[in-house]
Computed example of a mutant assay.
Amino acid sequence: MTTVFVTDGQSRSALAVVRSLGRHGVRVVCGDSTRFATAFTSKHVDECTLYPDPNTRPAAFVGTLVDYLRDNDVDVLLPVGHESTRLVNRSRELLAEHTNVPVAGREEFDRFVRKDFVMSQAEKLDIPHPRTVFPESVDEACELVETLSFPVVVKLPSEAGSKGLQYVEEPAAFRETFLEVYRGGEMPIVQERIPSNGQGMGAAFLRWDGEIKARFAYRRLREFPPSGGPSTLRESIHDERLFEAGETLLDDVDWQGVAMVEFKNDPRTDTPKLLEVNPRFWGSLHLPYRCGVEFPWLLTQCALGEDPEPVTTYPTGVRCRFLLPGDVLNLLSRHDRAAVREFFPIREEGTYFDILDRSDPLPTLGRLAAIARYSVDYDMWRYAIVR
C-alpha cells in the first residue's frame, strides 16, 4: 500500500489532500505542530504526528521530517502550507534520500513566490498584469509612482498573499505608506490597483515533465476580509484566457509540480490580470476535489513514476464554501442586509463545503474544537482557524 506524508493538518487544503488520497486507498500520515489539527480527525488519516512549528523552528521542522522519513516507510512527501513547502523545496535533496518529494526545488520556488519576479515575467511574456514599478530607493519610488494612476498598491515582493500589502488612495499619502511597508527591510514594488469591483479568479495546474496533467479555473464570489483575503465562496469556471496565461508562465520556467496562478478581472476592459503565483497547494483545493480534479492524487501518481491521464475537463458552476469560520466572519464584518441575503440558505444544490462532509464528519467537530481552543488568542486564531 502506498503511504503519503501530508503536512499542515490544520489547514483546509491539507484536509482536501487527505480526503483525495484516502478515497484512492492511500495510507495517509498527517503532521502538524498542533494537536488540534482539523485533518487529524478525518477518517482518511491513518496516523497523526507532531513536529516543530516550521514558522518559528524551521531547522527543527526539517530535522524532524528527516528523522521520521528515515525511520518509517513513506513513499511520497506532500508539503501543503507556505512555510512547510518553502522548507521542503529548500531541503529537497536531503529529504529525497528517504522518499519521493514532488516539488520544483529551492531556486524555482524562491523565484516564483516573489511578486517582482512574477510581474517581470508577465511583462516579458506579454501577459496582462497591473502596471508595476520596481524602485530601488524611497526617493525613486516617489518619482516612479507619478507614472501610475491612483489608487496604487505597495507590496513586499517576497511575502505570501496579503501580508506586507497596503493600499494608497491619494498621492499625498504615498511616501508615508511606502515607508511603513518598507521599514528599512526589503524594497517594496508599487502597482496600480485594479478597481475593487473586479472579480478575483484563479487557474490551478499540475505540470509534470513538461506536460499539463491537470488544470482547473474558478472565480471568487466572497472573501474574508471582504477587502481581500481567502475566498469563502468560489465557483468553478472554464476560461481559456486564464489557462493560456498560466501555462505560458509555467512553461517559461519549466515548472514541476502544482501551482495556482491568481488573477483579478479588470472591469474597465474585462481582462483578467495576473497578480501572483502560489507555487504550492492552495486554500480553495476542495473545489477542484469536488469537481473531480484531484490534484493530490494525480501528483502522487506522478511522484511514483506513473503516467496518469491528464484531467482538463470538469463541471462548471459548482460552488464550494468555507463556512467555518470564513463565511461566518464575512457575514459579521459586512453589516448589511445584502450580506444576510447572500449568506442564506446555507445549503444549496450544487454547493459543497471545504470542511463539512457527511461522509467524513469528524473534521467539522475538530474545527469547532480549534475555534473554541484558540478563540482568545489572535495569533493562533489566524494560524489555526482562518487557514
Rank of each mutant, 00 (worst) to 15 (best):
R92D: 08
R92M: 06
R92C: 01
R92F: 04
E93L: 04
E93G: 10
L94H: 14
L94C: 11
L94G: 00
L94A: 11
L94K: 10
L95T: 13
A96S: 14
A96L: 07
A96F: 07
E97M: 08
E97L: 13
E97A: 15
E97R: 11
H98V: 11
H98M: 10
T99F: 01
N100D: 15
N100E: 15
N100R: 14
V101D: 09
V101A: 09
V101G: 10
V101R: 12
V101N: 12
V101W: 09
V101C: 01
P102A: 05
P102F: 06
P102Q: 06
V103E: 15
V103Y: 03
V103G: 14
A104R: 02
A104Y: 07
A104K: 02
A104Q: 09
G105K: 08
G105A: 12
G105W: 02
G105N: 10
G105F: 11
R106T: 10
R106Q: 13
R106K: 05
E107N: 04
E107P: 00
E107H: 10
E107C: 06
E108S: 09
F109M: 13
F109R: 10
F109S: 10
F109Q: 11
F109K: 07
D110L: 07
D110R: 08
D110A: 00
D110S: 07
F112M: 09
V113T: 05
V113W: 03
V113E: 03
V113Q: 14
R114C: 09
R114E: 11
R114P: 06
R114G: 10
R114F: 04
K115I: 05
K115T: 06
K115C: 02
K115H: 05
D116T: 11
D116V: 08
F117M: 03
F117V: 07
F117N: 03
F117Y: 12
F117R: 02
V118Y: 05
V118I: 09
V118A: 03
V118K: 02
V118M: 05
M119Y: 00
M119P: 04
M119L: 08
S120P: 01
S120Q: 11
S120V: 03
S120R: 10
Q121I: 03
Q121T: 06
Q121D: 00
A122K: 08
E123K: 11
E123N: 03
K124C: 13
K124A: 06
K124D: 01
K124L: 12
K124P: 01
L125N: 01
L125P: 00
L125T: 03
D126S: 14
D126Q: 14
D126V: 09
D126H: 07
D126P: 10
D126W: 05
